[in-house]
Structures are given as structure tokens and as C-alpha cells.
Simulated assay, not measured.
Amino acid sequence: MKNLNLTYVASALVFFAGAIDCKAQTLVTQKALSVDAALAVAHGALDKCHTDGYRVSLTVLDNSGLVKLQVRGDGTGPHTLEHSRRKAYTALTFKRTSGETARAWAAATTPPPAIEGTVGAQGGVPIKAGNEVIGSIGVSGAPGGEKDEACAVAGIAKIADLLK
């Protein structure tokens, strides 16, 4: 009888210890990029590029790497849409601009990681709410990655108040 009571007590302790662990778990709350915010970023980037005389395509990704918005600009080459997606995916994956990633890869003594969909080209920028990456934008088609990146940064600036 004594062993049976100890078994019940031990079982109860294990059950309640598990219940405490479950109680400590919560739902994850995270910021997300809305469609309206993605559209504002896209318009801001396109406006900057158009003002500077560049025809570009762009991609805005959500925090899981899925396409939130893609625009193939008038008069752009067929490769620019996919290239913009890869730039955005690189920025999202490494949580820094795709240009910073390209420079890190070039300086590394070992080969870059073989992550499908990433590219070592400037023009992708993470979209951060505080320190949390909530999406990214990639721009392709301007005559140089630094110009693509400047357009992407101008787009993100359009929602700067939301990102504080």
C-alpha cells in the first residue's frame, strides 16, 4: 500500500510539474507588415527610382519570406523581378542588407553558405520594427546595386513612423 501511495504522489508531481510548464507557455506576439505598409514601401521605392530616372522591379517579403508584393516596372528586363526577390530574401535571411552580406561573403576565407534563393548583390534591405525584422524589400534594375539600395531605403522611410 505504501508503494502504491508513493506511485500516486510521484505521478501527481510529474503531472503538476508538466502543468506548470504548460502554463508558462504563451502565444507568440509579433509585429507584421500590413498590405498598406507594403504598398507604401513599394510606392516610396518606385517614386525614388523614377525621380532618379531608373526603371526597376521590386519585391516586398513578409517576415516568413513569402512575397507580400511584387511589381515588375515598366520597361524592365525579365530578370529584374526574380533578382529583386532574391535580394529581399537575402536581406531577410541574414537580417542585414544584401550588400553587407555580399561584402561579408567576398571577405570570407570559406565559401558562402549555399542557401537557396540568396544572392550576393546590393539592393535588398530588411524592414525592422525596432530590432525585429518584419520583412524586407529588394529592388533591381537601376544601374548599380547602390542605387537599388537607395530606392529600397527611401521606400522604408515612408513607413518610418510605424517602425518605431
Rank of each mutant, 00 (worst) to 15 (best):
V67G: 05
F16R: 06
G53A: 10
A106C: 07
R96F: 14
D36V: 08
D74L: 12
L27I: 11
A10H: 12
V71R: 04
K87Q: 09
D21F: 00
A129G: 03
A108G: 09
F15E: 09
P113T: 13
F16Q: 07
T51G: 03
G73W: 01
G124Y: 01
A12M: 08
G53W: 12
L162C: 06
A40I: 02
A102M: 13
V35T: 10
A108R: 05
R96P: 09
G18F: 00
P143N: 08
A40Y: 00
L6W: 14
I137E: 00
K31E: 08
Y8I: 15
I127G: 00
E100D: 14
H79N: 14
T109N: 15
A10R: 12
K31G: 03
G120W: 10
P113N: 04
L33F: 06
E82Y: 08
F94A: 11
Q30T: 12
C49P: 03
T101P: 01
T59N: 09
A19K: 14
R85D: 06
G138S: 03
K95D: 11
G117C: 02
T110A: 15
L46H: 04
G130H: 06
P126W: 04
T51V: 11
E146T: 13
R86M: 15
F94I: 08
A106S: 11
A38I: 00
L66R: 09
P78M: 12
N131Y: 09
A42K: 01
S98F: 02
V14Y: 10
R96H: 14
N131E: 14
G145C: 07
A37F: 01
V56Q: 03
A104K: 09
S140T: 02
K164A: 10
L6G: 12
A37E: 02
L39W: 03
E132N: 05
M1C: 09
D52Q: 07
V67E: 11
L61I: 01
D36M: 05
A107Y: 04
S140E: 01
Y54A: 13
A157V: 06
I159L: 09
S34W: 03
G144A: 03
K23W: 14
G73L: 02
S136Q: 06
A91Y: 02
A142D: 05
A19D: 10
A160M: 03
I115S: 05
A150R: 01
S57C: 04
L33S: 00
V60E: 03
V9E: 10
W105F: 12
V139N: 00
V60F: 04
T59W: 00
F94K: 04
A38E: 00
